[in-house]
Write a protein that binds this DNA or RNA. Sequence first.
DNA 1: CGACATTTTGAGTCAGCTCAATCAGTGTGG
DNA 2: CCACACTGATTGAGCTGACTCAAAATGTCG
Lengths: 243, 243
Amino acid sequence: MRSQVLEVLTRKLEARSALSIADRGTLLGLPITVRRYEARKDIILEGRHNNQCCIVIEGLLCRYKVIKDGGRQILSLHMPGDIPDLQSIHIDVMDHTVGTISAATVGFIPHSAIKQALQHSRELSRAFWLEVLIETSILRGWTASIGKRSAPARIAHFLCEYITRMRAIGLSDGMTCVMPLTQTEIGDALGLSTVHINKKLRELRRAKLVELRAGQLRVLNWRELSDRADFDPNYLHLPLLKK
Amino acid sequence: MRSQVLEVLTRKLEARSALSIADRGTLLGLPITVRRYEARKDIILEGRHNNQCCIVIEGLLCRYKVIKDGGRQILSLHMPGDIPDLQSIHIDVMDHTVGTISAATVGFIPHSAIKQALQHSRELSRAFWLEVLIETSILRGWTASIGKRSAPARIAHFLCEYITRMRAIGLSDGMTCVMPLTQTEIGDALGLSTVHINKKLRELRRAKLVELRAGQLRVLNWRELSDRADFDPNYLHLPLLKK
DNA sequence: CGACATTTTGAGTCAGCTCAATCAGTGTGG
DNA sequence: CCACACTGATTGAGCTGACTCAAAATGTCG
């Protein structure tokens, strides 16, 4: 059970990095505490200190900031295998909150254990670095999208990115996947109002590009959708994405 | 001359991390090539590979992405001591472009030399990590600002952040500093049009909060400006900023 | 079935955009 | 020293994408 949990992390890292048997062993030997969270619960609050990292086992997490008079801005989504607060190893005060979108199973690993593991393996250290750097690249993608894309393009881009990431971890066939965000949450992620999300989503639906119902996303016309989105998966730095 | 150049980096890192004499020596021994760039020139292009990191010696750099039909989004500003493309050590293809805002002096250090230095010192490695993580934190601040703040608050926040960062590296007294961005560039950074920047900037000027002329920024009423901006410097993770 | 969350739709408003000049500062050549 | 060129700042006049408010419809779950 415990090792099944760490298996998720191992698989994630191995998708991009070549780990030795020893590295694998180190990972699987990490001390981990598992907790279950309901949907829409905070896990780590902005302003708090933190002496462990959380890793998504199952479900969807997000990071967000609350802006005065402006509601909240979701900054990232985190899927199984992700470590949303890896930065807390070196930065002691959280500058944002980590919470759940859907109900989720989350593992906690003490900083001390992670630091020790990283000191013992150069390759493991590189693998963790890489995950952080790719997350940052995705964040840059979001920033550019929010800053410069029209609402329809922004929504289309979001959907393309979401399903591409889900596919990369084996949770989608590239056409269909689970999508637990409400329209309000999509708005919080894209810097748009709920009502506007709804209206533009309807247009995408009417144009037979996507379906989004009951927490299921289905892409009907990838070509056209990714075209409207100006979607280029380069920034996701995926390993062997044959497309 | 060469060591003066690396001095900028050393000072930056030492502001946040305690480096040993040996670490200092390692830094000052890094092989570096110095180049001078004119204002508004690209240094590393999106899509390219990269086998060295650039470090800002003097002047202002930025990173940006170009969005189809949407112009460009500036993703970050880089001041002396910053290493804008540190992520290229582990990610081989650039997902954005690095270029100059003002004329700038830039140093280039081969990846191989940096990797070697980081392998030899745990503290140095931590110091470089930290710089990357803080830059990411600043990026999150931008994302939230672009996504959720009104244009006036966004501009005020940008100015607060800019002068605070300049002050942290000794290039401002907290009230005045050099500000080489044109209004178009401020717009590119904030996801706003040039015209709108101009109009909202005028309001800040009329309210006697700031002056911004001839490449000089002067804050006349910090209290009110930072209040309108909802500015909380926590996310800059500055070391000993007494404020 | 009832309570609650989420989605959908309509109507009206406004922040921020585009287009189009004009003005100001700086540099260049004669 | 002046005319010209060029870049950046400013201003005015609409226009519209996205917002807010409000209500109805639909879905979910104990």
